[in-house]
């Protein structure tokens, strides 16, 4: 067996080990390359920043626990931005597995940083089934779909909800999602009810969202952990996404190295076969 054939048939566990080392190494030795900003991230940040203080915004937690490494920093950064401007934040989740619990945990933690009070500064609506029906239903009356909040308190008992009855009372919707719900926030809520929607999505979903940003249906976009890091940079408060960028850089380089070595091995063995 030649050198390249041996390289091509290397045990997959060596590859796993290299990946694990590349993820961990930057946690010991920080590299700190500057984070570049994309126009899409700036657009989202500026849209929220330009909202008057005390505006009412909706923040969605449309993501499963599986992707919180990418999505949670987006929610945290957005909440910090919104609470720093004394906005009233209404959260909702269209994900049946984990969404409402993540929303509770994240909003309560960030609200504590800013001394915000539940029911006055923010409300967690929780989850209802069939998200397309939920999105439509919120347009005429939030209370028709959510008679009570996530923990069962009737909405009429929450002071913040006295002024927020439907989409007309909201200034912006920031969708953080890892799945197709974001398509319907655009094609139903933005298209039919004319409310601005921005989004922070996982890297897997992001390429499709560029089409919505370009068409003007979406106001700004964060793509994956890098997108979250961009928002953290714009906000001036580093978080877990910024911290993860060094590991992200090194593993990307490793994957590129794998692709190149794999291809050299492939062409070398093909040349040998031809001979």
């Amino acid at each position: 067996m030649g050198f390249w054939e041996r390289i091509a048939n290397i045990d997959r566990r060596w590859i796993y080990l290299l990946v694990a080392l590349s993820v961990t190494l930057p946690m010991i030795i920080a590299m700190k390359f500057p984070i570049g900003l994309t126009p899409e991230a700036k657009q989202l940040f500026n849209a929220i920043d330009a909202l008057p203080d005390s505006s009412a915004v909706m923040l969605t937690f449309d993501y499963y626990p599986s992707t919180i490494a990418e999505t949670e920093p987006m929610s945290v950064a957005a909440l910090r931005h919104m609470f720093s401007k004394d906005m009233h934040v209404l959260t909702v989740s269209n994900i049946p597995l984990g969404g409402p619990s993540i929303a509770e945990r994240v909003t309560r933690a960030v609200a504590a940083e800013f001394g915000k009070e539940y029911g006055i500064d923010y409300v967690n609506l929780g989850y209802r089934a069939n998200y397309v029906a939920v999105m439509h239903g919120l347009a005429s009356s939030i209370e028709s779909i959510f008679m009570s909040d996530n923990t069962g308190t009737p909405l009429r008992e929450l002071p913040m909800m006295q002024n927020i009855k439907n989409y007309d009372d909201l200034d912006f919707i920031y969708v953080v999602a890892d799945n197709a719900t974001v398509d319907y926030w655009i094609s139903i809520v933005n298209a039919q009810y004319d409310i601005r929607v921005g989004s922070g999505v996982t890297a897997v979903v992001a390429p499709k969202m560029y089409a919505f940003v370009e068409s003007g249906q979406m106001t700004g976009l964060l793509g994956g952990m890098k997108g979250a890091a961009e928002y953290e940079k714009l906000l001036g408060k580093k978080g877990t996404a910024t911290r993860g960028m060094d590991s992200q850089s090194l593993v990307h380089l490793l994957v590129i190295f794998f692709v190149i070595v794999g291809n050299i091995g492939y062409f070398a063995s093909r040349k040998k076969e031809k001979k």
Partner: peptide, 21 residues
């Protein structure tokens, strides 16, 4: 539940690196 679900999907990073190779 949440840490396990996060880990299940984190394992895909190893598989995708192996597939790239």
């Amino acid at each position: 539940d949440s840490p396990m679900m996060e880990t299940m999907f984190a394992m895909l990073a190893f598989f995708i690196a192996s597939a790239a190779y």
